[in-house]
Write a protein that binds this DNA or RNA. Structure first.
Lengths: 249, 249
DNA sequence: CCAATATACCGTACGTCGTACAGAGTTTCG
DNA sequence: CGAAACTCTGTACGACGTACGGTATATTGG
């Protein structure tokens, strides 16, 4: 189940994101806070993945009945919106180096964030939760490419390219780790279980480049480091491409 | 629920992928074939998404009971593996142009494939199904960057960068369309529902670049064309970056 | 022609999920 | 001291993948 951000009632979602709900005057003392629920949900998603994040599990963790959660949060979609914005709060703005150093910082920082919170990759952010950290992130990303002679639209495109690349590379890395965890097999072990059967079905000569290059890549990089190398390689190429654009201005 | 490819028994999976199952000598005539189930599943996923793809729905569609499906396919994971390989069969090898034209063809072809079969984006392919089309795809992708003076490992990295970029850009595009379908709101309508509430919570002066650039980007590109522009922009930058690498050899 | 065997197909059942709804208990205000 | 506002909970619905055991059907060997 892919989770969609921006799914709930916008007013209620935004109140939650900005924490502006005035506390009630009557009724029993609340046993929880929305923030506590968000923290618990993030810890659970970090430890067991987004698939294991259920309203029932969160309630268990907090020692209340499942339906109590709905007192503090309109539903699961809105909760995930807040989790996303809170996670973005861990990112740090780049410093004062070159534009290239600033974009590298942004990419590496996001790469690390996705590894700390792999569930972020399962949340679609085409309509992001308009919380303080999400807005702040966009702001400092744009600052990193301000004053380089790019148009406003180009600035937006460059930022989207770099963050999109970081997300894409992190996705490969996180999925590789997750596949290893689930299957209990390393990539090498997996390949050793597939290769013999594949050999009886396929003629290697039909795939000369795939056989040669696949073997070379497999030997050069163990599965444990391959995603990191792919990130570094791709980042260098993407920044080189952006440099071509900037130099043309 | 993210779906993982390569989850099932490798022998049974590979037999399915290569269609090598000898047909049974005794027992009742089969009413279906594995291929028929795969076709039905792909049509269903195309029309209603991977979340709507259930063994029960497939069985309904074919007029049999849910458990009958398991006569032809070991489980849902293996079925999805075959769906993936069959979809890759729609891709076409690049022609004889420059390396840049060949890589552009690969990226555009994949971009289009992900739009025809958006569910492909929900399947993790770190351990891809080793079917004929998946192997063929890797082979002609490598052929596109053969003979340029790159090392084997660099060839693999370049191909992964270009296809990873195409996938990443298509993901944004597909998610945007899906968000519109689900919510019944265009991006403009969504923004109009969020902006007024956001205005009461946020001081625009705190986000000067975000406000200016966000507005500019929103006006330049309607939501309907924005993902396509982002794809073209990013592809040009990525290929420029690869050109820098190739020229350095 | 008759059993033995292999296969196809199906009904039931289990433990998940998000959350609608109705009710019970608790605190504060007028 | 009510009434209103609020917190919390139990039950229920229809979905999911698939394990298991049973029954119907086709082919084979005698």
């Amino acid at each position: 189940m892919t989770e969609y951000s921006g799914g709930g009632d916008p007013r209620r979602s935004l109140e939650l994101l900005w924490g502006v709900r005035e506390r009630p005057k009557r009724g029993p003392k609340p046993r929880l806070t929305a923030e506590e629920i968000v923290r618990t949900a993030i810890a659970l998603a970090d430890a067991e993945g987004l698939d294991a994040l259920s309203m029932r599990r969160i309630a268990d963790e907090l020692g209340v009945s499942p339906m109590s959660i709905y007192t503090y949060v309109p539903g699961k979609a809105e909760l995930i919106d807040v989790m996303l914005d809170r996670a973005f709060g861990e990112l740090t703005p780049p410093g004062d180096g070159t534009w290239r150093a600033r974009l590298e910082h942004i990419a590496r920082d996001e790469w690390a964030l996705f590894h700390r919170h792999p569930w972020l990759l399962q949340i679609t952010t085409v309509r992001p939760p308009m919380g303080p950290n999400t807005l702040g992130k966009y702001e400092y990303e744009l600052r990193a490419v301000d004053g380089l002679g790019l148009t406003d639209v180009e600035m937006d495109s460059v930022v989207a390219l770099v963050t999109g690349f970081a997300e894409s590379a992190a996705r490969v890395s996180v999925n590789a780790a997750e596949a290893e965890r689930r299957s209990g097999m390393s990539d090498e072990q997996w390949w050793e279980s597939v290769a013999p059967v594949l050999g009886t079905l396929v003629n290697e000569a039909d795939y000369p480049l795939g056989t040669r290059v696949g073997t070379a890549a497999g030997q050069e990089y163990s599965a444990a480091v391959a995603p990191g190398r792919a990130f570094e390689f791709g980042l260098a190429r993407v920044l080189d491409g952006i440099e071509v654009l900037i130099n043309s201005r």
